[in-house]
């Protein structure tokens, strides 16, 4: 179950969309699409809310989108105090769906609705594999 690789701290290592972490490790940001009705999901879901089908396929998203909103966390919970303050952004993806992740843009340059891209990342400072994505300016 590779899903435990996802996150600096992972709370749920098991899920029906565990392959998400496999793809992320390979640098791919994947959502799911319902095989029956075609609904796209990011974050990925194993079960379709639209038609109740449980058949889905993996679809890559560009990770590009617009910054919907953000915050800077100063008072951090357990496991995140060493990286505080950190910026959390919510991205409206061009391909549909939303994503929440760390924003890697200097605070003074952040603007709501700015174009950003979610880039798959591996924590290099930690020996274990820990995956995440950061929201960066589109080059």
């Amino acid at each position: 179950m590779p899903f435990h690789y996802f996150g600096k701290i992972n709370f749920v290592p098991y899920t029906k969309v565990t392959k998400f972490a496999d793809y992320l490790k390979d640098g791919k940001l994947m959502g799911t699409r319902c095989k029956k009705c075609g609904e796209f999901y990011f974050p990925p879901r194993a079960d379709c809310i639209k038609c109740f089908s449980d058949e889905f396929e993996w679809v890559e998203t560009t990770g590009k989108g617009r910054l919907h909103t953000y915050t800077i966390i100063y008072a951090a919970p357990t496991g995140f105090d060493d990286i505080a303050p950190y910026i959390i952004g919510v991205l409206d993806l061009d391909d549909g769906g939303r994503l929440l992740g760390w924003v890697d843009v200097p605070e003074e340059q952040i603007e709501i609705e700015m174009r950003l891209k979610a880039v798959p990342k591996i924590f290099e400072e930690i020996p274990d594999i820990k995956l995440y994505y950061s929201l960066e300016k589109i080059k």
């Binding site: 996150g7 600096k8 709370f11 966390i73 357990t78 990286i83 959390i88």
Partner: peptide
């Protein structure tokens, strides 16, 4: 502090240290 780190959706959000 540990409880505080699990207020959101733990699968997709809490892993980024949301509060």
């Amino acid at each position: 502090l540990a409880l505080m780190g699990r207020v959101g959706d733990v699968q997709w959000e809490s892993i980024f240290g949301t509060t």
